[in-house]
Amino acid sequence: MRRELRAEWTKVRTAPGTAWLPVAAVALTVAVSAAATALVSCPSAGCRYDAPKVGLSGIQAGQAIIVILAVLSVGAEYGTGMIHTTLVAMPRRTAVLAAKATILTALTSAAGTVAVLGCVLAGRLVLPRNGFIPARGYPLLSLADGPTFRAAAGSVLYLVLIGLFALGVATTVRDSATAVGLVFGLLYVLSVLPYLISDPGWGRFLWRISPMNAGLAIQSTRHLAALPLGPWAGLGVLAGWAAGALLTGGLLFRLRDA
């Protein structure tokens, strides 16, 4: 496994395209979060916003870059034919996929941690100016606060799981373009559908199985009772999607010719 890990790390490190993707993910996440915190405001009459969730809303955009990173880590090999070389050098296919997943997890958690810290910092700086003050029930965003820490750390986990999910899908379909389309469809379209269906029963059901809605429940710190799923259960749904995609991809990777 060490050989595979080293080979995959060398690939990621030296490919010109993938090197800047984690940086882009951090920049996009923090920028969108900062914009969202600058746009919301809490009037003196009070408001119902979930401040940590607003501060972390950039994750919804930043995850797109993580998806690209994950999809390219396997899709690009199929696109260029590099996969043949890879499998000649390292015939243990499960180990190859595990190495790819490990490297991706390491990269995503590093980028995710930096991005989340940036978001919390932006929230600390901007939110109090827009009326999110202790007098209206909004203390300064702080990782020492239990629910806020859960939201922040959970967001990093969320990004990791999104990356693994995309990796599994890309391994299954073996084409970057199709994989990216499929993952975005499952993430974004499935996340709007509950809002477009007026039947509340179906709406809540779709909300529960949607990887993005359920997964982002981990960011909620208020009105938890109104959520169709609890924070950890929601992240569990996303973990289920990731596991399913990775298992399918891994099985097909072993069974099919490259």
């Binding site: 746009l39 405001s41 809303s57 974004y188 809002y195």
Partner: peptide, 13 residues
Amino acid sequence: VLPRVLATTSVLP
């Protein structure tokens, strides 16, 4: 797609 998704589902005002 993303602007439409954000405008429909997010916490954005």
